[in-house]
Amino acid sequence: MSEVVNKDTVPDEAQKDYVEDGKNKLLVKCKFCGSKILEKKTAKYVAIEKELPLMQQDANRKDGEVQKEMINEYFHVENMYIFENIGFTHPVDNYKYLICADCDAGPVGYYELDSKHSYVALSRIVQS
């Protein structure tokens, strides 16, 4: 095996539990209400660094400020109709944010207006 591991496609040891053939091995669900977001093996695992607004914003933050965090693991969904249940916010710049269709918790990821592709943050959902 080559020493250079392609970070984008090859999951490391920790991810093997829930990535199979580069896709989500398990169901993807809402952390808060369990609503089914993706069926098994419908989205591609990608290691990309991308900032997402926090689900809980500090009430004392400055006016107009959006608190964000860096997230580096996503499930890539090529076509929005692959989703079982999902909500889309109004656009902000080039994105619409993804939210749970049942309890509206979010953002659980983002949708890119240009590419029409969606990305679900692994740290903001549960798999089972």
Binding site: L54, V66, F88, T89, V92, Y97
Partner: peptide
């Protein structure tokens, strides 16, 4: 956060 942006569709 989400409610300030509003929802487009589900």
């Amino acid at each position: 956060f989400i409610s300030t942006i509003g929802i487009d569709f589900k």
